[in-house]
């Protein structure tokens, strides 16, 4: 089918957020179905202090298997991974994670741009990137890389965002495929 070859199946979804994005995830995660097809990587700006409780908190909101990404872990379909605090999260050709302790990017580690670019390089057109609420402009460069690789890019509707700056910055600079509220986002992910 013509349609299918133009729309390759998304195998990896990246969700990036900063201030105000946790509330979105708390609403979004319970709406995701148990047999979700793609892998999901969540990259959040967080305090560098060891807030390992975030993974526990998120796991109460989803039926999907969720874990903090560990060095050399293989990215598996239908699994959800949270980028650990104070490391950048990279992806190797064999679809395993590499943690990286290099300089902060956009004052952030993990940085959305870093993981989004790494994903675009490895998963190419099979990638979808979603940018949520936040008060800085991390993520736009990464989304551009995903778009260039043929993937899909999505922004949280800024009017629904506690901190509209981050999704708005992406919308102002890129041609987004979709602008969604939380319920629309869940519908999109469940249909992949």
């Amino acid at each position: 089918m013509e349609e299918d070859s133009l729309n390759p199946e998304i195998e990896l979804v990246l969700i990036g957020g900063s201030a105000g994005s946790l509330e979105v995830l708390f609403k979004l995660l319970p709406l995701l179905k148990a047999d979700l097809k793609p892998a999901i990587i969540v990259v959040l700006h967080r305090k560098s202090a060891g807030d390992s409780s975030l993974i526990d908190l998120l796991s109460t909101k989803t039926v999907l298997p969720i874990q903090e990404a560990e060095d050399k872990d293989l990215i598996l379909p239908g699994n959800m991974y949270l980028a650990p605090s104070d490391y950048h999260l990279l992806i190797e050709k064999n679809r395993t994670f590499t943690l990286d302790y290099s300089e902060k990017i956009n004052f952030s580690r993990p940085s959305l741009d870093v993981t989004f670019e790494a994903a675009a390089d490895i998963f190419g057109a099979l990638t979808a990137g979603i940018i949520l609420s936040g008060a800085n402009d991390d993520g736009t460069i990464g989304l551009r890389a995903i778009k260039k690789a043929g993937g899909k890019i999505i922004a949280q509707d800024p009017t629904t965002a506690q901190m509209p700056l981050m999704p708005q910055h992406a919308i102002n600079n890129l041609k987004m495929d979709h602008i969604f509220n939380t319920v629309e986002m869940a519908g999109y992910l469940n249909n992949l």
């Binding site: 990279l90 190797e92 590499t98 990286d100 290099s102 870093v114 790494a118 390089d121 490895i122």
Partner: peptide
């Protein structure tokens, strides 16, 4: 060395 890290740097 990790190719993802080397490529980025």
């Amino acid at each position: 060395y990790s190719r993802a890290s080397l490529k980025r740097r």
